[in-house]
Amino acid sequence: MKLAIVGGKLFFYDGNRYTTLGGMPKIVDSFSPFFDQIVMCVPIRDGKFKNSEPLKSKNITFHRLPDYKDELEYAKYNIKRVIEINKCVRDADVVHIRLPSYEGVQGFLLAKLHKKPIFTYVSTDWQKISNITWDKGLKKLFAPLYGKINDLLIRLVVNNSVSFLLGIDLYKKYKKSGKPIYMGYTSSLSSKDTNKIKVIKRVNKKIINLLFVGRLAEEKGITYLIDAFNELNKKYKLTLTLLGQGPLEKEIKQKVEKLGLENKINILGYVSLKEMDSVYSKSDIFILPSLTDAMPKVILEAMAKSIPVIATNVGGIPTIIKHNKNGILIKPRSSDEIVKAVDTIIKDKKLRERIIKNEIDTAKSLSIERIIEKMVLQAKKDLNLN
Rank of each mutant, 00 (worst) to 15 (best):
P100E: 14
K115T: 08
K26I: 10
I346Q: 01
I287Q: 00
E231Q: 14
G23D: 10
L383T: 13
L189R: 07
L248E: 15
L238N: 02
N233A: 09
P296Q: 06
G167V: 12
E262M: 06
M375G: 03
D70G: 14
G167P: 11
G269W: 03
S306G: 04
Y171I: 02
L110M: 13
I44G: 05
K374H: 11
I83N: 09
L65D: 00
N59Y: 14
L156K: 04
K192I: 13
P180Q: 10
N160E: 13
Y102S: 10
K179L: 12
I226W: 08
F49V: 09
P318R: 13
V271T: 07
N59L: 15
I154K: 04
L145S: 09
G178A: 05
D336Q: 12
L300A: 06
V28S: 08
G315A: 15
T344M: 07
N59A: 15
F35C: 05
P66R: 07
D293C: 12
Y236S: 00
N86S: 15
I321G: 08
F11N: 09
N86C: 14
F108N: 05
F11D: 03
D67P: 02
A217M: 08
P117F: 12
S177K: 13
L216I: 10
V298N: 12
L259C: 07
L165F: 06
S190W: 09
T124E: 07
I129E: 15
D151G: 11
K58V: 03
G214E: 01
I345R: 03
K136M: 07
I79T: 15
N326H: 03
N230R: 10
L21R: 00
E53N: 02
G246A: 02
V157A: 07
R45M: 03
I360P: 08
D293Y: 09
I320S: 02
V42P: 02
N160H: 14
E73N: 11
R354C: 01
Y74Q: 09
V279E: 05
T120A: 10
K357R: 15
S187P: 01
L232Q: 02
V82F: 12
H323E: 04
D343W: 00
P318D: 13
N195W: 01
L113Y: 13
I181G: 08
F108I: 06
I299Y: 04
A217D: 13
L268R: 08
I132D: 06
K175V: 06
I360C: 10
G244E: 02
S290M: 11
I345Y: 04
P100N: 12
L242F: 07
S334T: 13
N51R: 03
V162S: 06
K128G: 07
R215A: 04
I320N: 02
V82D: 05
F142K: 04
G104L: 12
L109N: 05
D70I: 11
R155C: 01
G246W: 01
F34I: 04
G107S: 10
G246T: 00
S278M: 04
L153F: 09
D361W: 06
I200V: 15
K380L: 15
P25S: 02
I330P: 03
V39T: 13
D151V: 08
T186H: 14
F142A: 11
K220R: 14
T362Y: 05
F11T: 12
H323G: 05
L72P: 00
T120F: 09
L138P: 07
I252F: 03
L109A: 04
M183V: 06
